[in-house]
Computed example of a mutant assay.
Amino acid sequence: MKNKLHMQKLSVGTEGIADLAAWQATPRAQTADGLARHITRMWPKRADEILGGGSIYWVIKGEILCRQQIARFDEVIGSDGIRRCAIVLHPELVPVTPTIKRPFQGWRYLQASDAPSDLTKARKGEETLPSELSAALAEIGVF
């Protein structure tokens, strides 16, 4: 079986996962069927490898903090007549092991073998670790 291919993208201007969710809930960030979307200039050449299980991993303040499964890619023609790609996303934001990421422009492909693992849900009454502490633990190999 082929490894899934994912994407990674900076979430500019958001402070955390809750900010990303709030932005995606705005009408401007949604498709006609109510799913979140992110519009980008470039169409992924490897779209077929992403669809059917690939996710977008969101980089927030220098760390990959969560992912969203990609539902489809829609063509969007801007008011300037330029063809763009809308990355249409399933609603669930899944927290992942915080992973430090240097800034980059646009989006990048991410091999499944390089993708951070999903965080397990905290047990009842258990607090989640601050992202800085999680990132430090991940950096030394604890996570």
Rank of each mutant, 00 (worst) to 15 (best):
K2P: 11
A138P: 03
D19M: 01
D33T: 11
V142L: 14
K101V: 15
P98H: 03
Q69M: 01
G53P: 04
D118L: 02
I77F: 04
K124M: 01
K9N: 08
L129Y: 06
S134H: 10
A25C: 09
A86D: 10
T14Y: 11
D80R: 10
L93H: 05
A136K: 15
G141T: 09
T120K: 13
K101S: 05
F143V: 12
Q24M: 15
D74G: 02
P116M: 06
A32K: 14
D80F: 07
R123K: 11
L133A: 15
A18R: 06
Q8Y: 00
A138N: 15
M1D: 09
F73M: 03
K61D: 13
M7S: 03
S117G: 03
I60D: 02
E127D: 11
L20G: 03
N3C: 00
P95W: 05
R28Y: 01
S79L: 13
K124A: 13
I56C: 08
I100S: 07
E139C: 04
A86E: 05
I60F: 09
I100L: 08
V59I: 15
D48N: 06
R123H: 10
V142E: 12
W43L: 04
K2A: 11
C85M: 02
R46C: 02
G34K: 07
I140V: 15
M1V: 14
F104I: 04
P130E: 11
L129P: 06
H90W: 11
V94E: 02
E63V: 11
A122H: 03
A36Q: 07
E63A: 14
A135I: 07
N3S: 10
